[in-house]
Design a protein around this nucleic acid. Structure first.
Length: 671
DNA sequence: ACCAGACTAAACAGGG
DNA sequence: GCCCTGTTTAGTCTGG
């Protein structure tokens, strides 16, 4: 299987190259681990503010104010909790956001910021995705912030009203003081709001314009609360953010019921035990779990949540000397409680999100591959790309196993190839193509770009490649040097091991009777004797069970094959058969391919079509190449042939095709 | 296990 | 003498 082919490839690539080939290597996922620096210590600067506000008020009024303020905060907090907890309870009118709409965002908001550092996010997500995610998050945060502020405002207004009413009965001064206090409250609110916005901006989560940010409550979408928490976790809140601090202090010291978000947020300050949960940098949290899960399978004795001497519980990096200690720690610190449950929930969301991400990425990959190599149109779920691609690439149905060739080196592999290999499962030999008359041309047409740029060994035999090179020319003849050039031009792989493959090319030219050397005026050129070429293919091909098997194999294959055949029938086939077929020109583009691949089979396709693969049919070989101006009668001698090939006035040459690119009209056969 | 095909490596020869 | 081109031989792998 893969191995074989791989090994073969390696072998084939003489010493020197192999090494190089492996360049592509696989990017290990290295992660980059995070730099610890990022984290910020949550610190506590700034809580003065909170106090400060208190101080504003006068005694009793102030207290009242404070009290009410706390109430408002409480409401906000509950709101937060609700959101954080998963929004399950629609209860409050707050539940404004439809579960569906919110759910995702929330999860995202919860996980990304707190759990993942920006760097990690970037590593995991593609730029566009990141952006989308951030936007989502941003939107959510803004929305929540807005709501939060709205609530506060309402509260304050309410307070104001009540107090005003009360004020009527009170001395004016008192009223004045209260109003002053309220105004201050409002100011604070605004400040708070701005602070949050600034924070968000700092984090890059919000791209609001300064002016916007500065805007008053009404205009802005502000951000605090739930969504905000994440940022707190990140450590953003650390240094002097009065507002946040105040919020935390007052609002967060809730009871244990706090959901994840809360608990996390609160952790730093409120509950000591949780302190370690603070994700200073949040990095390890998300990823670790997964890692662990996998690892734990590996080591039975270990615990998935224990690694490298520390607790891998999200946010907890407590060092534990041994498993026993860890277990103890686990039972005490991460027992079944709200916090753990909430964290677990978060983790679930993280995983879920990642899975979704994976699915999306896979889909994208599929689409990319489809676009690059095969039919762009078919976006298939990656579930079984293999089959498809295989089919695509090898219309003939043969499984050519290019397979592994690609594996070692390339980052990308021609769809056809790889898939084929995979699909076939059988590792057929790497160079099968010619053997089975595989349609090199079609394969090349489809993936020539790939081969051109990827240092992958093409899955074709030297003989088939040489033949292809020769057939692609209008005259159907090439000098050795031109053949070399074709190889290097068409395959990145052959730009490297020159000595080796050139020797192989020469060896093949000499060895195979199908390659005829013709003395030309200018020198010697090589042509292809199709008849010989066909001969050398295994006779069984025609009806060989294996062949049939191959053809049949592959779900999609049938259809593709059919289409392929149809295409061939339409385009090339006629040409091939026809005596004149060889005219290089027109045909060249198609023919080469077709012959080639179709090659032997020449005629098969048309009628039998579906069942029989092109090549199968008995050969009518067709064309023989005619040497250009040859003086080369000799050659004819060699090749018994009567005019084998008749036909071809090869000369007619068509024109342009020279470069494969042009020659192989993609559309033609592939479809 | 055998065979055939494909590939790599090398030696050798002729010509420019 | 060097390089390119061609021819041959030998050894190894792989799939049938």
């Amino acid at each position: 299987m893969m191995v074989e082919s791989a090994s073969e490839t390696i072998r084939s690539a003489p010493s020197g190259q192999n090494g190089v080939g492996s360049l592509s290597g696989q990017a290990d996922g290295g992660g980059g681990g995070g730099a610890g620096a990022a984290g910020t210590a949550g610190g506590g600067a700034g809580r003065d503010t909170a106090t400060g506000s208190d101080s504003n008020g006068e005694m009793s009024p102030a207290e009242l104010l404070h009290f009410q303020q706390q109430q408002a905060l409480q409401v906000a907090r509950q709101f937060l909790l609700q959101q954080a907890s998963g929004l399950s309870s629609p209860g409050n009118n707050d539940s404004k956001q439809s579960a569906s709409a919110v759910q995702v965002p929330v999860s995202v908001a919860m996980m990304s910021p707190q759990m993942l550092t920006p760097q990690q996010m970037q590593q995991i997500l593609s730029p566009p995705q990141l952006q989308a995610l951030l936007q989502q998050q941003q939107a959510l945060m803004l929305q929540q912030l807005q709501e939060y502020y709205k609530k506060q405002q309402e509260q304050l207004h309410l307070q104001l009203l009540t107090q005003q009413q009360a004020g009527k009965q009170q001395p004016k001064e008192a009223l004045g003081n209260k109003q002053l206090a309220f105004q201050q409250q409002l100011l604070q609110m605004q400040q708070l709001q701005q602070q949050h916005l600034l924070n968000l901006q700092r984090q890059g989560l919000v791209s609001l314009q300064p002016n916007q940010a500065s805007g008053p409550l009404q205009t802005l979408p502000q951000a605090v609360c739930p969504s905000d928490l994440p940022q707190l976790w990140k450590g953003e809140g650390a240094p002097g953010q009065p507002a946040e601090d105040s919020v935390k202090q007052e609002g967060l010291d809730l009871t244990g019921t706090a959901t994840t978000a809360t608990s996390f947020a609160a952790a730093p300050k409120v509950s000591p035990p949780l302190s370690h949960h603070t994700l200073p940098n949040g990095q390890p949290t998300v990823l670790t779990p997964r890692r662990d899960s996998s690892s734990h399978e590996e080591t039975p004795g270990s615990h998935p949540l224990y690694g490298h001497g520390e607790c891998k519980w999200p946010g907890c990096e407590t060092l534990c000397e041994d498993l026993g200690q860890f277990i103890k720690h686990l039972n005490t610190e991460h027992a079944l409680d709200d916090r753990s449950t909430a964290q677990c929930r978060v983790q679930m969301q993280v995983v879920q999100q990642l899975e979704i991400q994976l699915a999306k990425e896979s889909e994208r990959l599929q689409a990319m591959m489809a676009h690059l190599h095969m039919r762009p149109s078919e976006p298939k779920p990656f579930s079984q790309p293999v089959t498809v691609s295989a089919a695509d690439s090898f219309p003939d149905g043969l499984v050519h196993p290019p397979t592994s060739a690609a594996a070692p080196v390339t980052p990308l592999r021609p769809p056809g190839l790889s898939s084929a290999s995979l699909h076939s499962g059988g590792p057929t030999r790497r160079r099968s193509s010619d053997k089975f008359c595989s349609p090199i041309s079609s394969e090349l047409a489809q993936n020539h770009e790939f081969y051109k740029n990827a240092d992958v060994r093409p899955p074709f035999t030297y003989a088939s490649l040489i033949r292809q090179a020769i057939l692609e020319t209008p005259d159907r003849q090439l000098t050795l040097n031109e053949i070399y050039n074709w190889f290097t031009r068409m395959f990145a792989y052959f730009r490297r091991n020159t000595a080796t493959w050139k020797n192989a090319v020469r060896h093949n030219l000499s060895l195979h009777k199908c390659f005829v050397r013709v003395e030309n005026v200018k020198g010697a050129v090589w042509t292809v004797d199709e008849r010989e070429y066909q001969k050398r293919r295994p006779p069984k091909m025609t009806g060989s069970p294996t062949l049939v098997k191959n053809m049949i194999s592959g779900l999609s294959y049938g259809a593709l094959n059919a289409s392929y055949q149809a295409a061939l029938a339409e385009s090339s086939f006629p040409l091939l058969n026809s005596p004149g077929m060889l005219n290089p020109g027109s045909a060249s583009s198609l023919l080469p391919l077709s012959h080639d691949d179709v090659g032997a089979p020449v005629e098969p396709l048309p009628s039998n079509g579906s069942s029989s693969p092109p090549r199968l049919s008995p050969p009518q070989y067709s064309h023989q190449v005619q040497v250009k101006e040859e003086p080369a009668e000799a050659e004819e001698d060699r090749r018994p042939g009567p005019p084998l090939g008749p036909p071809n006035p090869s000369t007619s040459g068509p024109p342009e095709d020279r470069d494969l690119e042009e020659e192989l009209p993609p559309g033609e056969e592939l479809s």
